[in-house]
């Protein structure tokens, strides 16, 4: 994947965000007045972001328009990206399931899924690890840290 194209898109997005911060007065609610002004620093930062994003966009756009060859980090290798999407999917499912099914029930399945995603096929040690680790973490958090991880609520 050509990073220069991503640079142009991301920079354009950041420039739009910066312009909104610089021009919109409805980004703050309530509070008292101060000498500095609540939007002073955000606007300074937005102004700087605009400059840096524009610099990156111009550099990348000029290379793209000249058809210059990709150099080192400009080439994004996309091999294995499917795994990333699956992993993020597992994590989102974990986040959605834990409040209902609880930490102890959900975690073994998540650990098993991540292990399988990483190519693990040694079932007995993986299943043992997936069961023992959540139990240790759950009771360790409760007894030593006084952190109560979510439990079954269905």
């Amino acid at each position: 994947m050509d990073r220069r194209k991503i640079d142009v898109v991301v920079s354009t997005f950041l420039i739009i965000v910066s312009v909104i911060i610089l021009t919109n007065d409805n980004l703050v609610e309530g509070g008292a007045e101060s000498d500095l002004g609540i939007m002073f620093l955000p606007r300074v930062v937005a102004g700087l972001m605009l400059i840096f994003a524009a610099t990156i966009a111009i550099q990348s756009f000029s290379k793209l328009s000249k058809g210059a060859e990709l150099e080192g980090p400009e080439l994004i290798v996309t091999d294995g990206f499917r795994g990333i999407f699956i992993y993020i999917g597992i994590f989102i499912a974990y986040w959605l399931a834990v409040p209902h099914l609880g930490f102890m029930v959900t975690t073994p399945f998540v650990m098993l899924a991540v292990a399988v995603l990483l190519g693990g096929r040694s079932w007995i040690p993986i299943i043992t690890m997936s069961v023992i680790t959540p139990v240790l973490i759950y009771y360790g958090s409760r007894e030593f840290l006084r952190v109560y991880l979510p439990t079954w609520t269905l």
Partner: peptide, 25 residues
């Protein structure tokens, strides 16, 4: 240790660590 033993644990520790901060989903 093989990656498939380490990174499932890292994932769960990251989850627990994030939750521990404010005990908030």
């Amino acid at each position: 240790l093989k990656r498939y033993f380490i990174f499932p644990c890292v994932t769960v520790f990251a989850f627990t660590g994030a939750f521990t901060a404010g005990q908030n989903m």
